[in-house]
Design a protein around this nucleic acid. Sequence first.
DNA 1: TAGATTGTTAATCGATTAACAATC
DNA 2: TAGATTGTTAATCGATTAACAATC
Lengths: 250, 250
Amino acid sequence: MTAVTFAEIIPSYTRYVVIDMNLSNTLIVKRREAPSIPQPSLMRLPQYHHYLVELETKGVSRISCSVIGRDLNCVPVQVRKDLQYTGIIGKPKTGYSVSELIRAIETFLGWNNVNEAFLVGVGNLGTALLGHERFSKFGLSIVAAFDTDPAKIGLWIHDKAVLSLDKMSDLAPRMSIHLGIITTPAEVAQMVADEMVKGGIQAIWNFAPVKLKVPEHIIVHNEDLYNSLASLSWKLARRFRVPIQEKEAV
Amino acid sequence: MTAVTFAEIIPSYTRYVVIDMNLSNTLIVKRREAPSIPQPSLMRLPQYHHYLVELETKGVSRISCSVIGRDLNCVPVQVRKDLQYTGIIGKPKTGYSVSELIRAIETFLGWNNVNEAFLVGVGNLGTALLGHERFSKFGLSIVAAFDTDPAKIGLWIHDKAVLSLDKMSDLAPRMSIHLGIITTPAEVAQMVADEMVKGGIQAIWNFAPVKLKVPEHIIVHNEDLYNSLASLSWKLARRFRVPIQEKEAV
DNA sequence: TAGATTGTTAATCGATTAACAATC
DNA sequence: TAGATTGTTAATCGATTAACAATC
């Protein structure tokens, strides 16, 4: 019995790697370091989800990768690969069940389990995020906001209390908060991140334009608008440069 | 005289490709299809920029890739490659001039030429973006906002007028606006994009969670928070899954 | 000169795409 | 059965990293 055979017999075990087989013929398997999915695939899943939910409201019950690809403007094989990471199994000729697919994506992304989060920095962007009810559909619930501005502390914004930043690192463990959102100016973002780490926060969604320094095990996700803007303005600038097609020199 | 020699003599011409040399010894050169830079490199440039500006205020005048790499937590050779796309030339042993580097990045990204933009969708996020003064440092100026909500039309938000969406496609060409920002709900984003295209807008910065369908030549940049959130919540969920390290089977 | 650092070419790594086998 | 579609393996493509030569 080889590793390959094993994987064939129990398909769901393909994510495991056979590392040893002991005397009693018991297979010792080890989960791969990363049951990994490529980052780009991960980021495309919500798009499929959004599309599928819309499809479901229209009463469509089955869907194929070629149709998804046509509607979402990408190649079918990419869709297939992406969806496979969620563990869904399709039927040749008939495709996938729309509702199963939706559930598979939601489960895979952990949208069924609510992530409670603290938000720090109640400026324009922070306020906007506090008011974003749609986050709840994606398993995110912002339970409190923090700031250092006395004029803001004590306010309720979009039904969330604004508290003093001092209290955050105490409150986080007491409320079992694992996710922090930073919407402060760049200057104080690192200090806020340090506080979050102190409070035992595991993952940081960072909207400030700085690369945070945090311990190895902390998950950081940067949402830096300026990076994005850079890309856009470069492309736009290139568009309006005189398009020198041929040029004489020397 | 070969292409290589030519590039050596006039370094700034390395972005051109020699395609022919005519009888009078005039070199005919053609700009490459894409004076391209990898997307990831492009998105990293603002980070270097931010870091360098801070460095300059501290009075540092020269910098090496290894130091940048140490401070920004990436490998020196990546820094070097990224910076090279801007056309900057360093000196072995002494590194790069900080101020030259800053200017090179700004020029490369087109931050010296202002991009005037229309914003459509004055909700929480739209309002936040309207109030983002820092955009001006990156060559972005939002000159007007649009909405369909009569309660919002006519307001001034962060010194910008909110106008009726009807007027956008007329105003855009008259004001030579080439950039549009969409901060509407997903449902109407496609309609807004169509209007923008009608108004001759060349590039769209889309914050709505939909994949827009636009003509080939329109530049679209999606800033989809849900994609990001997906990635983050997946990683966090994985963290809290029981970490099966070894497992017996059959 | 020696050593640090840039610039560049080659190797590696990972994601995408193409090709094809399996299946309903 | 024939044809459409999934699932999977192999090839391609692009970005990162390693190795090394050039230079101050």
